[in-house]
Structures are given as C-alpha cells and as structure tokens.
Amino acid sequence: MIRTGIFSGSFNPIHIGHLALANWLCEYEELDEIWFLITPQNPLKKRSELMEDSLRLEMAEAATRDYPAFLASDFEFHLPRPTYTIDTLRALQKKHPDRSFHFIVGADNWVNIHQWKEYEALLSNFPILIYPRLGYEVVIPDCYPHIKAVDAPLLEISSTFIRESFQKGKDVRFFLPEAVRPYFI
C-alpha cells in the first residue's frame, strides 16, 4: 500500500518551509509521497486574504514539479465548500483505495482539532503526523496510537510573513522556491 501524506492548506503562497517539512516527512517518516492539497476556502480563514485558487495551485505545481514524491493537487476544488478535512480524507480514501492516507497537521492546528468537523472520526480513522510549531505543546491521548508528533526541524516561515514583506517592498526571494520567485519579483 502506498503511504501518502496529505498536506492540506491554503499555500498562500507555498514556501520553502512547506517544502522542507514535506521533504523531511518523506525521508524520516517513511512516506512514499506527499500531496499538497490546495484548500479553496478554509472555514477558519477569511476569503479576502487568499490569492486566487488557480494561482495558488499554479505556484504549488511549479514548486513541486521537479520532486517526484510531491504532487500539487486541486482535489478539494471539486468538493462542496467550505471543505472539511474529514470529508476530504473520506473522498480520497474512496477514490484511491490503494493508498494509506496520513494527514499532516501543525501543532498550532492540533491544539484546536476539537473544533473541526467530526474531529473524533478524523482522530479515530486516519494516521496523523503532527509537526512542531513554536510555542505549541503537542499532547496526544493514549487511545490514538496512530497519531504521532514528529521531530521535524522547526521552521517558522509563514505565508503571511512572505505576503506582508513583499507588500512592504522587501526582497523575499530566498523564502520562496525558485520556481515561485517570478510571481513575487
């Protein structure tokens, strides 16, 4: 069975922190591949803050094109909106029964997982890899042996930082994958 990591997010824009983390997860958590699922509308974020869906997908495709274990995906574009993680994972499981899907989430989102739609079903039915975020402690109840806090490098780079810096005229080229730099320079 193919072990597929699901890295779902706005990727507004995708940056080197996303890619470095995904690379680490493939190499050290034995994932065969990682799918970057571009989320059209996170129920917890304002739509006005997002670049166009197609532009975010295009940048993710450009950033992941040369690494065979990475795939940028518009899978959530074709689901009812707003999209919810549990619905996405169920739809992926149904469409791709040959894969074991491992959901990737940051410690900052993990602390709020109880606010997510059908969070108990998510925790009970899918392997979850939780990556570290500065200032967030990860506590996993013992009843979920398939949920793991990973010891990935702490990379505190955010898409918000990149967008705000760019708007201020800052040169952010080294925070972005080379293929994404033309969108910002």
Rank of each mutant, 00 (worst) to 15 (best):
E120L: 10
P40N: 12
I14P: 00
S48Y: 02
V150S: 04
L57R: 11
W116H: 04
N12K: 03
R181F: 07
G9D: 00
Y28G: 01
F75C: 09
Q41I: 09
F101L: 01
L44C: 05
M51E: 13
L50S: 05
L123G: 00
L176V: 07
E30V: 00
V138C: 03
P80F: 00
F175E: 04
Q93V: 00
H102N: 00
Q167S: 07
L89G: 02
L155I: 15
F7T: 07
T88A: 12
L44D: 13
I86K: 05
L37H: 11
R65F: 09
S100T: 14
R3M: 08
H78Q: 14
Y67V: 14
T64C: 12
A63L: 04
D151K: 15
Y144N: 03
D87S: 12
L55I: 12
L123P: 02
A72S: 07
E27Q: 15
H102L: 04
C26W: 04
E30Y: 05
G169I: 03
W110S: 04
Y119D: 05
W24N: 08
T39Y: 01
L71A: 11
H146R: 05
N109Q: 13
A149N: 04
Y131E: 08
L129K: 05
E164L: 13
I86D: 11
D108H: 11
E61Q: 08
Y144F: 14
F75Q: 11
A69H: 11
F7K: 02
D53M: 10
Y144V: 03
A107T: 03
L123I: 06
P177R: 11
A22E: 08
T83K: 02
T64R: 05
L55D: 14
Y144G: 02
H78L: 12
I38Y: 01
H96R: 14
K148F: 00
F175W: 15
S158T: 15
V172W: 02
I14D: 02
E49Y: 10
S48E: 14
Y84D: 06
A91M: 09
Q41L: 14
N42W: 06
Y136S: 11
A179T: 14
D142M: 01
H96K: 11
E33H: 03
F77T: 10
N112W: 05
G135M: 08
K170F: 11
A72I: 10
L21E: 06
F161Y: 12
N42H: 15
I185R: 13
W110N: 09
T4Y: 01
A107K: 01
A63K: 04
G9E: 01
L71G: 00
T85N: 09
I157S: 01
G106D: 06
L44E: 07
E118S: 12
P82K: 08
Q41D: 05
N109M: 11
S10R: 08
T39M: 04
T83M: 09
F184N: 11
P141E: 10
I130K: 01
I130S: 05
F77G: 06
P132Y: 06
L31H: 02
H96Q: 10
E30H: 08
L134Y: 07
E33G: 00
V172A: 06
G169Y: 01
R65L: 07
E178G: 00
